[in-house]
Simulated assay, not measured.
Amino acid sequence: MAWTFHLLAEHPEHERRLADEVCTRTSGSPVTFADLPHLPHTRNVITETMRLRPAAWIFTGCR
């Protein structure tokens, strides 16, 4: 989540778009699992964050 907030701070146009999408879809209510298919920009932001800053590194070692 920290990287998501960091990237959104660097790209305020996406932060506004994400906030507008969530507010429009939920009318101020908490987001539920049922809302997720209706939040494409939110999904794109999270997917792009995970692409740029993956949560865990994959280590391969020599034997």
Rank of each mutant, 00 (worst) to 15 (best):
M1R: 11
M1C: 09
A2M: 10
A2Y: 06
W3G: 08
T4I: 15
T4K: 09
F5R: 08
F5N: 12
F5E: 08
H6W: 15
H6I: 10
H6L: 15
L7T: 02
L8H: 07
L8W: 04
L8D: 08
L8V: 03
A9T: 05
A9E: 11
E10N: 14
H11G: 02
H11E: 07
E13M: 01
H14Q: 11
E15L: 15
R16A: 09
R17S: 08
L18T: 05
L18K: 04
A19H: 10
A19G: 00
D20H: 06
D20M: 04
E21H: 00
E21Q: 04
V22R: 04
C23Q: 12
C23Y: 01
C23K: 07
T24E: 11
T24V: 00
R25H: 06
R25E: 13
T26W: 03
T26A: 06
T26G: 06
S27C: 10
S29F: 05
P30N: 08
P30R: 13
P30M: 10
V31E: 05
V31I: 14
V31M: 13
T32L: 15
T32I: 07
F33K: 07
F33C: 07
F33Y: 10
F33N: 08
A34S: 15
D35Q: 02
D35N: 12
L36F: 06
L36H: 03
L36Y: 04
L36T: 01
P37D: 09
H38I: 00
H38P: 00
P40C: 11
P40S: 13
P40M: 12
H41C: 05
H41A: 06
T42C: 14
T42G: 05
R43H: 06
R43I: 03
R43W: 00
N44H: 09
N44Y: 03
V45G: 02
I46R: 05
I46N: 03
T47A: 15
T49N: 07
M50V: 00
M50F: 01
M50W: 00
R51I: 03
R51K: 13
R51M: 08
L52K: 14
L52R: 15
L52W: 02
R53M: 07
R53K: 11
P54D: 08
A55D: 10
A55L: 12
A55S: 14
A56Q: 10
W57N: 13
W57F: 11
W57G: 13
W57S: 14
I58G: 04
I58V: 13
I58P: 00
G61L: 14
G61K: 12
G61N: 10
C62R: 15
C62W: 14
R63V: 14
R63E: 11
